[in-house]
Design a protein around this nucleic acid. Structure first.
Length: 206
DNA sequence: CCCTGATTCGC
DNA sequence: GCGAATCAGG
């Protein structure tokens, strides 16, 4: 796997957007493991994980007998207690990023009755499609990104596919812009990637 | 069972 | 450095 700067940039972006590792993996046509692994190596901020590994290591780690690592008795007791401190600390402008809604299912398509295509396919499979959690236009207040001609495409003209092309923050970045499928934020091409069947998403992309 | 992310470890 | 295998919680 060649982690080009661009790929890495996309990974970072998607990661920052709160997409699941699997989601990111699908989009980059790689496995979630690759995503997670790379993310860690890149030192990307970990996201809420349900698990905490530590109890046991059936693997070779088993012999990793924990050394009685003398841990200094945390000599620090600076806490003036109470939450009073933090005097001139940041004005609490901490945006906390979009960590809130990883999978908001922002699908603007309210009616699952998209018989158009769903009807034919297996009911379950069809409805199994999950809306890409990508927030419409990964337009993060990246300052420099602002310079893009129009931050709100679908505002003035017809809707356009907002699939990100390139790395947000770099000159070449842009959104797909193609005509989206009615009721969806992406064009047909990207909708296929964005909306994945839960059943056989394993090898979707390709 | 499905999902999820984290860590380990052979490559 | 990479990522499959594995682990582990929801």
């Amino acid at each position: 796997m060649e982690w080009s700067e661009e790929i890495i940039a996309q990974l970072k972006d998607l990661w920052a957007e709160g997409l699941s590792t699997a989601e990111i993996g699908r989009r980059l046509s790689i496995t979630k493991n690759a995503v997670v692994g790379k993310a860690h190596r890149l030192g990307l901020p970990p996201r809420p994980s349900p698990i905490r590994r530590n109890g046991s290591k059936p693997k070779a780690a088993a012999d990793k007998a924990e050394q009685p690592t003398l841990i200094p008795p945390t000599p620090e007791a600076p806490v003036s207690r109470a939450t009073a401190p933090a005097p001139s600390v940041a004005p609490a402008t901490q945006p906390v990023a979009a960590t809130t809604a990883p999978t908001p299912v922002a699908a603007p398509s309210p009616a699952p009755a998209t018989a158009t295509e769903a009807g034919t396919v297996d009911d379950k499979t069809a409805r199994k499609e999950k809306a890409a959690p990508i927030t419409r236009a990964s337009a993060k207040p990246k300052t420099l990104l602002r310079s893009i001609s129009d931050p709100e495409p679908q505002k003035r003209r017809g809707p356009s596919c907002c699939w990100p092309i390139g790395d947000p923050g770099t000159p070449g970045f842009h959104f797909c812009g193609a005509t989206p499928i009615p009721g969806k934020p992406y064009c047909e091409e990207h909708a296929q990637i964005a909306y994945v069947r839960l059943r056989d998403r394993r090898d979707s992309v390709a």
